[in-house]
Write a protein that binds this DNA or RNA. Structure first.
Lengths: 193, 193
DNA sequence: GGCCTGACAGATTTCAATATCTGTCAGTCA
DNA sequence: TGACTGACAGATATTGAAATCTGTCAGGCC
């Protein structure tokens, strides 16, 4: 029976739970407040708006989804193999969720779709990681590129079909794995110069 | 006052007009029939269903949009320059429409989004054209690839961000042109081997 | 015969009344 | 004092009855 303090984190946990249960379209701030046993006015003390709350939930989800990627960046081995592993990990994470629990994935896809600012930030973060691997590859003599950051962005763009939720409907195609490897093959040769 | 015969083509023209005016969500078969001055039953003599009619309109639009591409395939000059021109033409056609008349583009985007079979057919056609250019490039010694068709598909996939309507929202980004050239640069080097 | 109409059943959409939600804020309580 | 409540205005969503639409088909017209 301990008195729980109302924190942004506790609200986020509950909001995520409510959004999962009711779906992103139906979940309301009132629902979240009810689940927490407080008035909805209290929620607005911690988040400026419903949009801000949704953004925060989305940001957390994206961060969690991409947590394994940092490890790959810090990994050892030649940069080309590392970049391939990084992209495969990203693609596998997305496809895994999409296949695992399509409804939950659709839920998050909806959130992501209209959280432009959050996604931009997230993409910038991904580009940073790719750029780091490419830069190291240039150092090793594995890659030859003029503009590392542009190349990093190009790699992410070129593989959009395999990780961008906008293409999720195509991920059930049995040839999607081969398609990804074909694009990777072209990119890898392109990076080698 | 000449009696007009009811042909599939005349229905298609009218359907396109009606869809433009009312939007893809509101346009009905009855609207099309009314515009033609016939009963809606007659329309079903030429198209098995509303979906079939929409598909036919979509197919015509895609064909029209991509008409300039055939000329580029048949063009002269080295294959790499030709492929670059082909992709630029495709991208320019899409961006042009999207910028020109966003509402009309959104209309067609909606149609395209739920005409999976039509789009698959269309994509196959585009891959054919790319494959032809790449094959000629291999003949010229400009390109070096194992599987021409797979490479063609990879080129289309890798440039999805720049021509797939699912990404239309990103096309207003001022750096989109540079991003495209960066991806092209990587692909071109990859194709050269 | 072949093209078209008009009426029909069941599915879908519209519309307006009703309920709920978002975001604010003065006031309560500890 | 500072976290919280509850009532409020305007915006948005739900609902169910009525209207419209889709797809079919028997029958009329040339």
């Amino acid at each position: 029976m301990s008195e729980q303090v109302l924190t942004a984190d506790r609200i986020l946990d509950t909001a995520e739970e409510v959004i999962r249960r009711f779906g992103p379209a139906k979940a309301t701030v009132v629902d979240v407040a009810r689940a927490l046993g407080v008035s909805h006015g209290s929620v607005y003390r911690h988040f400026a708006s419903k949009a801000a709350l949704r953004d925060a939930v989305t940001r957390r989800w994206l961060d969690r989804l991409c947590a394994p990627l940092a490890a790959v960046v810090a990994d050892t081995g030649p940069a080309d193999a590392r970049l391939h592993r990084w992209l495969s990990t990203l693609v596998a994470a997305k496809h895994g969720r999409a296949l695992d629990d399509p409804e939950l994935f659709a839920t998050y896809m909806t959130l992501v779709m209209d959280a432009r600012a959050v996604v931009d930030e997230h993409v910038a973060h991904l580009v940073d990681q790719i750029a780091r691997i490419i830069a190291e590859g240039v150092g090793e003599g594995v890659f030859r590129v003029d503009d590392v950051r542009a190349a990093a962005r190009a790699v992410l763009d070129a593989t959009a079909r395999f990780h961008n939720p906008a293409h999720a409907a195509e991920w059930s195609d049995p040839s999607i794995g081969r398609d990804f490897e074909a694009v990777w093959g072209l990119l890898a040769r392109g990076l080698r110069g």
